[in-house]
Amino acid sequence: MYKITRSPWVMHYDGSSCNGCDIEVLACLTPVYDAERFGIINTGDPLQADILLITGGINTQNAPVVKQLYDQMADPKVVVAVGVCACTGGVFKDCYNILGGADQVIPVDVYVPGCAARPQAIIDGIVKGIGVFQERLEKMEKGESLTDNKKAEETAESEDK
């Protein structure tokens, strides 16, 4: 449990991006940039993932998918929005089917700008994300609740009512 930050597993989901950031995320994990030297492993399974990399904006159809993937991930978890589309909607902000950035549906911890985000920036974002992850981990071990989750629970409760 203590050394989990030495090998965070990332999961990548393509919101409604143009693929530019997706292939840069993959380029991060392959030789030359090689994010795997930080112990990062790309996984396709949300149940085992610690960091969610999300690229592209949110539209009406993928909003529930993103929400579900986030809910399936175990605590503590970190969300990194990669690329300007995932941050704000970017060049597609005015399109009729784009609701905005990833923070419209899930809480985002780290924003990585760029169109397309460069691999160096993505790695930087992941490393920042690991820092947030460490904080949450320590909080959890002390038995404190994570504020983000508390907020999410409150909203869920108010929705239930």
Binding site: G15, S16, S17, N59, Q61, N62, C95, Y96, N97, I98
Partner: peptide, 14 residues
Amino acid sequence: IGFIHRGLEKLTEK
């Protein structure tokens, strides 16, 4: 399909 539909063809109006 429709998970990535953005509707950028209609951006010509803006």
